[in-house]
């Protein structure tokens, strides 16, 4: 089909869906719909992870991001008291500033990725490097220190959440 392999077709479809749903996140009027579109976007990105031999990452992306983090997003939307009369008005100025900042971020990201040698590699190997067994082997031997640091990071997140969320810490 058009000289493209199955991978290229799948990648094309999945990346199209990811971009489409990301745009829907931005353009949908209701914040709840935005969150639901974001979940769809995460599912598409998980599909791309699968194509890149990152199977464990794909599953974790669904479990943690599409599952837990998105529930937190819904929580935040419920917490925010978004009644129409209290909703902050978005003026033209804030839209222009947001556009400039987003455009600059896009510029930086593309300029960084353009020079990267990782883009020239063909990712469609036959490796099973992303499988949970191989990943665990590397994680617990070679990347032992970063793994232990993650626990400190989680601890810091825990303490930070309590400090900000709890009114009267005794």
């Amino acid at each position: 089909m058009l000289g493209l392999s199955v991978h290229q077709w799948l990648f094309g479809i999945l990346s199209f869906l990811a971009v489409l749903f990301s745009l829907m996140v931005v353009f949908s009027r209701s914040p709840i719909n935005s969150v639901l579109y974001l979940i769809m976007s995460f599912f598409s990105i998980s599909g791309i992870y699968l194509l890149l031999d990152a199977q464990f990452l794909a599953v974790v992306n669904i479990v943690v991001y599409a599952g837990a983090i998105m529930v937190l997003f819904l929580f935040v939307i419920m917490l925010m008291n978004l009644n129409h009369d209290t909703e902050p008005q978005r003026t033209v100025l804030t839209k222009i500033i947001a556009g400039i900042i987003g455009g600059m971020l896009l510029l930086v990201l593309t300029s960084v990725l353009k020079g990267s040698s990782a883009l020239n590699k063909s990712f469609y190997g036959t490796s099973e490097v992303g499988l949970i067994k191989n990943l665990g082997n590397v994680l617990f031997t070679e990347f032992l220190f970063p793994f232990e640091i993650v626990s400190v990071l989680l601890l810091a997140a825990m303490v930070g959440a309590v400090m900000m969320g709890k009114k009267n810490i005794n």
């Binding site: 929580f75 997140a157 825990m158 969320g165």
Partner: peptide, 21 residues
Amino acid sequence: KYFLTALLFVLFDVEVIFMYP
């Protein structure tokens, strides 16, 4: 406080995910 409980759940969720490998 409900949000805080959910947030702390996610943190321990991540801990469990590191136990799979």
